[in-house]
Design a protein around this nucleic acid. Sequence first.
DNA 1: TTGAAAGCGCTAACAC
DNA 2: GTGTTAGCGCTTTCAA
Lengths: 336, 336
Amino acid sequence: MKVTIKDIAQKLNINFSSVSRALNNKPGVSDETRRLVVKTAKEMGYRPNVIARGLVSRTTKTIGVIIPDIINPLFGEITTGIIETANLSDYDVFLCISNWDCDKEKDYINAVQQKQVDGMIVKSVCNENASLLESAVVPVIGLESWTANNKFSSVSTDNIKGGYLAGKHLIDCGYRKAAIFSGPENSSASQFRRQGFINAFREQELHFDDTKFCVGEYDIESGYNLAKQLLEEHPDTDSIFANNDVIALGILQYLEEKGIKPGKDIGVIGFDNIRMAGLPQIQLTTVKQPKHSLGRIMVNLLLDEIKNHSDKNQHYPQRILLEPELIVRGTTSKQS
Amino acid sequence: MKVTIKDIAQKLNINFSSVSRALNNKPGVSDETRRLVVKTAKEMGYRPNVIARGLVSRTTKTIGVIIPDIINPLFGEITTGIIETANLSDYDVFLCISNWDCDKEKDYINAVQQKQVDGMIVKSVCNENASLLESAVVPVIGLESWTANNKFSSVSTDNIKGGYLAGKHLIDCGYRKAAIFSGPENSSASQFRRQGFINAFREQELHFDDTKFCVGEYDIESGYNLAKQLLEEHPDTDSIFANNDVIALGILQYLEEKGIKPGKDIGVIGFDNIRMAGLPQIQLTTVKQPKHSLGRIMVNLLLDEIKNHSDKNQHYPQRILLEPELIVRGTTSKQS
DNA sequence: TTGAAAGCGCTAACAC
DNA sequence: GTGTTAGCGCTTTCAA
């Protein structure tokens, strides 16, 4: 059976509030009693019911994390950063996987609040839930979800800059007929990456052919299918900017099957720098996101907002942008 | 502010227990009142405090999941199976990442119980925590943690059979001088895989050279380093059984650097069948674990034990073994 | 220093 | 059908 402070009190023939005081290092108990209580608690295998404690304190030391997919190593690493950082402050994490489903995301946003999380971190996959997030009763940090009049803070890699780095690199290599394989159209990350990419072309007074902007999903199949379709329709394409590494992996798969050599016959650059991008068999040029830092910074920001949640007037939504970094590998190279 | 049933009751000038009855579809309220309550609750944005509810019911509809690493896609897929299945029964998941650290695992085991989880799923990384798990106040399901006199149920792939499939396949291909790259020595999974592998050799009256049993970690670096070391010391080695795909990836990395062709110059077989094993650039022969099913079955077993947790005497620890499957790809081939 | 009592938000047993 | 009350395990205020 679970042992409670009442059990301890009964055994020691004292009042249970003394037990509470002793166990929580609060003043108002003699050293003698405290010692005895602590000892007995240990002997009886007492574990405080933090849920009940939370009912009183109105906090649960728990945050909700809602992400679309944990198999994509990008989110795996971000989540690791989140959990590790949260643990440092004794917070635990409810992990929710929306599977890119709007309704499921909505259900989760409600569910974690019912479970009285102290705050949440959300990588939202659709704008429809924005108002739900804005009306949340606890602080919210968005991952890549900044919009013009955001009501909550957001953290992301500087996607415009990341897109720019990708575009600039392709141009520097001598590629001129680039394509973009985007994630879903409503993904702000993809929009920013596209924007930065095209900026790089404009800056050099080069033209980006909009018919080579291809919209898909953030998965391997999408990369494979888009590559097939694009190269059949536009065989003149000399390079592709995949909006994430997983899409790029799909592209490489198609190229491999067709015997087209990335880096030689065509340039391919991804985004994220997931670990397998660096495998010698892959050697994908990409734009690195500081994944662990994203998680860490989101948690720190969130905990800070939780701490100051009472004086709401003092709180303005922040937008934090982390630096992307170009990682050059074998799938791009100087064109003669 | 958060709205409670008392707020609703006050507004409607009725007793708060009527509100509770109405909201929970319990008998004892007029349809009229019920309608009114439900309507008002919605208007006021009421969200039940499931924590408080749990204090009464003594359940939290939450399970704790403790795994060593979420970036390894193996655990990513298992965790996805866990969360999806748990959600079907309205359970949420505390995700904890032990990072292969015994102490951290111990802390987590205590922490989730303090948070009053209804049960937990643990992939334990060390035997020292066995007693802690056995004395848990809630049902526990182990992932790959069966020992002779287990006190809790355990689910895993049939690792002996998996190891056997790997060994048999290498033999069938004509490899005779195999090596094993194992995970940590205390990993029961690795022990079973080794055992099955060697069984296959014995069965054919072939000898496995024990000096080619190499112990490392379950990561890329380990695969790389062991490959380097082994092939320098035992250049006659003709094949390697990596105890997971990530180790195998490290092996392939080393071979690539040395210009040694897997499947041609040397056979390599992994374990797990993570997604990237199937990439055309990798084409790793491996033994597939039913990852999503592992997660699903563990949750179903756990929920079942939670339901019958009261009549303890009726409960025997089960051991469930799922079937592995050989996936032949390019890194092994028939030797002439 | 200790005990008694109220209350966190909710459910459930009992009385009316 | 509705209100009252106790209690889940805990913290905290107020008396003693």
